[in-house]
Deep mutational scan, measured.
Amino acid sequence: MAAGGDHGSPDSYRSPLASRYASPEMCFVFSDRYKFRTWRQLWLWLAEAEQTLGLPITDEQIQEMKSNLENIDFKMAAEEEKRLRHDVMAHVHTFGHCCPKAAGIIHLGATSCYVGDNTDLIILRNALDLLLPKLARVISRLADFAKERASLPTLGFTHFQPAQLTTVGKRCCLWIQDLCMDLQNLKRVRDDLRFRGVKGTTGTQASFLQLFEGDDHKVEQLDKMVTEKAGFKRAFIITGQTYTRKVDIEVLSVLASLGASVHKICTDIRLLANLKEMEEPFEKQQIGSSAMPYKRNPMRSERCCSLARHLMTLVMDPLQTASVQWFERTLDDSANRRICLAEAFLTADTILNTLQNISEGLVVYPKVIERRIRQELPFMATENIIMAMVKAGGSRQDCHEKIRVLSQQAASVVKQEGGDNDLIERIQVDAYFSPIHSQLDHLLDPSSFTGRASQQVQRFLEEEVYPLLKPYESVMKVKAELCL
């Protein structure tokens, strides 16, 4: 049975990233139509530049190519590739079939990587351009969430054990800070992308030097003109047959890092959902379990974690691919890159769409948070109580021993009897502590235990987050809708 299948058929496997999760716009960027249309555009740009620099290419040939950029006979191309065992030459023939007058000058002087690699770089750039505003929107939604809850005390956790208090907004800023680093890295790697350009079979530009009869300047002009037509500021000066596969490492490393950030955020949300302090959106008709109707599973956060793990592992592909590119190139890269580049971007696209949807509907339960604080705060307040007693004339050592005994009794009630923490009640009825009984409410005010959390939130948002989001103001209103 021949390899390949009808990918629109229910009898043929289709990647869930495309069929179930990723956005239509990201799927289109990695589609065959987008790819092969870009090949034709690159052939047109090459012909236009070659004509401008004096090669015998007519206006009629150029116009014929322009008129057929979208006229792609995919069936013919597939048949040609089956016959020739070469995808680029299959599309040269297919393009030439609908451009008979231009057929002889299509791909003039070029090698397969002229269309293959340059198209990949265009796709990487455009895919990054799709991700950047999506990530900015996630940051914006979380920034709104953090600002609104900047002063809401909550129990902090280290080692997932109760620690000092923080605020809900401050905790959210930990998430935002990681995503801001990801946004900066995505922008950097996007701006650092260079075009492969017009380089020939081993990167020496020998074929173009021959076409222009040894004119170095025209060869350099050709490279520059096509690079500018493709919208790049610069091209690699040095290439082998391909652009260095280190570029793929750079791009997928940034995406993998984004995956790590999203995994951490969504894990926190899942843990908070278990504590009943916070939940992701839950639709009115949504079913959490087929057997347990009360369940409210954090399905979206779980999906993000599941896909983020996949995204983090994909960076190993370009690392290994770059390491086995012998001399000017081997074909070890080809099949692998067809999979890992598309999957990385479709996965990143999915987790950003999902995280935006989550961040637009996060639900906080202040009463649950308050109750958990009441359970733990008495123990945390013991040092403040000791200091207040010393100020009232008591002995630190005597007070410490009193607190120690009462704390152990209260802990026994919590752990052995399943009761509430009654340390404060014990202190309130103990005559030894009568000098500070009137101060206990103040000493137990949760806001006095959150330090500068709310001020940190305000400063972080104003100095770091809002300036970073400013270039994306025009796209901030787009909502994230999930079908599944």
Rank of each mutant, 00 (worst) to 15 (best):
A110R: 00
V429K: 08
R404M: 09
E48T: 06
K470W: 12
I265P: 01
L183G: 05
Y466G: 13
M292K: 03
K284C: 14
Q397G: 11
A335E: 01
P293F: 02
N357W: 04
L352A: 10
W326Q: 06
E425W: 13
F460K: 00
Q63L: 10
E302H: 00
R141D: 06
S261Y: 01
E48K: 05
L482H: 10
L362H: 05
K276I: 05
R37Q: 15
Q458W: 14
Q210L: 07
T242N: 15
I139S: 09
A150G: 12
Q41G: 12
C180E: 05
L331M: 05
A90D: 00
M278F: 09
H442L: 11
Y472I: 15
D216A: 09
S434F: 11
A273V: 07
V368I: 03
C483G: 15
I358N: 11
E464S: 07
R396T: 03
S15C: 14
S31M: 03
A136R: 12
M26I: 07
N297C: 00
G393P: 04
T94G: 10
R270M: 01
A348P: 03
L377A: 03
Q221W: 15
Q397F: 01
L121N: 11
M26L: 08
D182W: 03
S301V: 13
T244V: 04
E80D: 13
R20T: 00
A22S: 15
L108C: 15
N274M: 11
Q286I: 03
S323P: 02
R190A: 11
T167F: 01
D441N: 09
R20M: 00
N353S: 12
K264E: 02
A344P: 06
K264D: 04
D182S: 04
S438F: 08
F160D: 03
A322Q: 10
E302A: 00
S359Y: 11
C483Q: 15
G214S: 12
C304R: 01
P56A: 09
S31K: 06
R309W: 03
D129S: 09
V315L: 12
L406D: 06
V138Y: 11
V254C: 08
F95Q: 06
E25Y: 11
E383G: 02
R372G: 04
V138W: 12
S306G: 07
Q285I: 12
Q63E: 09
F160T: 02
E148C: 11
P24T: 12
M89C: 14
Q408G: 13
N336M: 07
A127G: 10
R338P: 01
A411C: 14
E283K: 15
L319P: 03
P16R: 12
A410M: 06
A291L: 03
G116M: 06
S140F: 15
E277D: 04
V29E: 00
V478H: 07
A136I: 15
H437C: 11
Q161T: 02
I269W: 14
A18D: 12
A90R: 00
N357L: 05
F157L: 06
E481S: 15
I269P: 02
F160R: 04
A143R: 05
G288D: 01
L484Y: 14
L128Y: 15
T111E: 00
S395Q: 13
G451E: 04
L444R: 02
F145L: 05
A90M: 04
V168H: 05
Q177R: 04
I386C: 09
I427W: 05
W326F: 15
E250K: 08
A273L: 07
G200H: 01
F36I: 15
D430K: 04
Q356C: 15
I265C: 13
E280K: 01
V226H: 04
A308M: 01
L311C: 01
H217E: 10
L255T: 12
T267L: 08
L362W: 04
V457P: 03
R337L: 02
V219I: 07
D317H: 03
Q164S: 10
P281D: 12
T313C: 10
A411W: 06
A388G: 08
K170L: 08
Q375V: 04
R141Q: 14
K35C: 10
K246N: 03
I339C: 13
V198D: 03
T94A: 14
D216V: 10
F449D: 04
L209P: 00
A77M: 15
L132T: 12
N274D: 09
Q439H: 07
L271A: 05
R337F: 02
L355G: 04
P153Q: 00
R149P: 01
A344K: 00
C27A: 13
P467K: 11
S438Y: 11
R245K: 07
D332V: 01
D144Q: 15
Q285V: 15
S395N: 11
D268E: 13
T119M: 07
I237C: 09
D117R: 00
Y365E: 08
T382F: 03
N357A: 08
T347V: 08
T313R: 04
D317S: 09
G203P: 02
S448H: 14
D422L: 06
S9L: 13
S23C: 07
S395L: 07
E328Q: 02
L482G: 07
A256P: 03
H400G: 02
D268Q: 06
E283H: 13
L53G: 04
I339S: 13
T94W: 06
N185Y: 10
P133A: 14
V368C: 05
I386E: 04
C340G: 09
S140Y: 15
A260N: 00
E383H: 02
N185M: 08
E48R: 05
S301A: 06
K35H: 13
E370T: 10
E383P: 02
I373N: 06
A3P: 05
F345L: 12
P467A: 10
F379G: 02
K82W: 11
S112P: 02
D144S: 15
C27T: 14
L275Q: 04
D129E: 14
E80W: 06
L311K: 02
I369E: 03
T347P: 10
S23I: 07
R14S: 15
I249F: 07
E328M: 01
E220V: 11
P467S: 10
T204V: 12
F212C: 10
N384K: 06
E79I: 09
L423Y: 07
